[in-house]
Design a protein around this nucleic acid. Structure first.
Lengths: 257, 257
DNA sequence: ACATGTGAACAGATTCACAGCT
DNA sequence: AGCTGTGAATCTGTTCACATGT
């Protein structure tokens, strides 16, 4: 189990590094903005600045796609937009279903960037019968019972899970069984899926925790001006604070070696 | 990348790799679940499975924090929860403001995972005067005019931007000028900030595009496996060498700017 | 003259495999 | 015997610097 290895026939597909793939949408966005301003060409330096990366990285990234630039000149904006779109598979239409139409699901359904680029919200699905038929973002919500039929009728291969954590794995399994092979998971839980299914997760709480870590570190550096090496001694004392969960007030402070 | 502030001396080797920091919240969530079920100890193998990573990685990650396990036994759940919480800075309270109370902002305000761990929504801010005073998730929305005062009064150092793309940079600058040093950006735009300010971004549209890329690749592989069929345009130009890269679902959803 | 494209050096993250402790 | 903790090997991604082509 676990995410395991990547058995894959090994072959096919140009070997575009995952990190590069993750940046292509960024470049595409910057290029689209240039295109709208009718800018004909752009240098790696300029485009990199607009996308928030450095130019060497950008050139390396593009080199995986092919030689789409002109030395001494730069890149043709329109041409690059097309090439990247094609590489990302955005020249085709991707019907998407959103499962779980709570606050977040509704926000996603209303999200403009959705439709703008290749993606089309094919259906909204929720387990609450009282939601059925109610339009959200102009699309009537359908009941979970019909999930399989909806997936099938619309040829959906990408699903978005915006349900509570408790329902996510079950919804995931039904989506996969119905033929979905890519899932964007907003529920704060680890989904387990069979080989060949892609899952990406977006987790607000995790992002905030990462920020908190750095924030704390900044504060610590300031204090370093005077205080010397701080040992873990205070940890035990502080452990008696709250970690607050459950009826018991205080939390253990087990000391290992 | 997220920080850039390397702080020369490196007094105590508090050099926890960024990739490890990004996984700590994952471990913490799994541990919290175990804690709620009163599980006293857990092995790296079990915990790794629950967090969706492999056990070697988990042990390596924990080794950066210190030696918190017991050989032959495993890790004490409560103790680890405390240590990770402390490392992430979650033993203190982080007041957070959300700017831009549209669909998404409202969803964020209502998001339970927010309050659950260290974070507290101190204020909601929106530019629309007609929203002022209207409660969202029990918190009255305040007008952008008062942004600086709100940040200051509440000692806010973490801000969430959920405005339209066009307003994001300006909001960002005001937040930073008012003292915010960590920003979680949901607007589909690149924010530029001074040194010392952390930005993380969450971008739905980018996530979907990455999924589309892999989805397209799957379709391409099928087609190639069956026959020499071409899927859409000319695949002639390709034919370079390949390195079959497995998709493997879990790449950090977001990268620091 | 100028900006791309890329081999090579470097840096960071993951995995392996086993020594060391309980 | 079992599981952690970690050096070493490997893999992936980034940066450098310059050869290459227009």
């Amino acid at each position: 189990m676990a995410t395991g290895r990547t058995h894959r026939p090994a072959t096919r597909s140009r070997g575009i590094p995952e990190a590069t793939v993750a940046r292509l949408p960024l470049y595409l966005r910057a290029l689209t903005a240039l295109s709208e301003r009718s800018v004909p060409t752009v240098s790696s330096e300029e485009l990199a600045a607009a996308a928030g990366v450095n130019s060497a990285k950008l050139r390396k990234d593009f080199s995986y796609l092919g030689s789409y630039g002109t030395r001494g000149v730069g890149y043709d904006v329109e041409y690059l937009v097309y090439q990247i779109s094609r590489e990302l598979g955005l020249t085709q239409d991707w019907p998407v279903v959103i499962v779980g139409i709570g606050n977040l699901g509704a926000a996603l359904a209303n999200y403009g960037g959705f439709a703008s680029r290749g993606f089309r919200v094919a259906a909204l699905i929720d387990a609450d019968p009282s939601m059925a038929g109610k339009p959200v973002a102009g699309i009537p919500v359908q009941h979970t019972d019909d999930l399989e039929k909806i997936i099938d009728d619309n040829g959906v291969s990408i699903g978005v899970i915006a349900t509570p954590a408790g329902a996510a794995q079950q919804v995931c399994e039904r989506l996969v069984a119905a033929g979905v092979t890519s899932i964007l998971n907003f529920a704060p839980t680890v989904l387990s899926v069979p080989d060949g299914v892609d899952v990406r997760k977006v987790d607000l709480s995790i992002e905030l925790q990462i920020l908190a870590f750095h924030e704390q570190r900044k504060a610590g550096e300031e204090a370093e001006a005077q205080a010397g090496a701080v040992l873990e001694a205070e940890a035990a004392a502080a452990a008696a604070k709250e970690t607050g969960k459950g009826p018991d007030g205080d939390v253990p402070a087990v000391m290992p070696a």
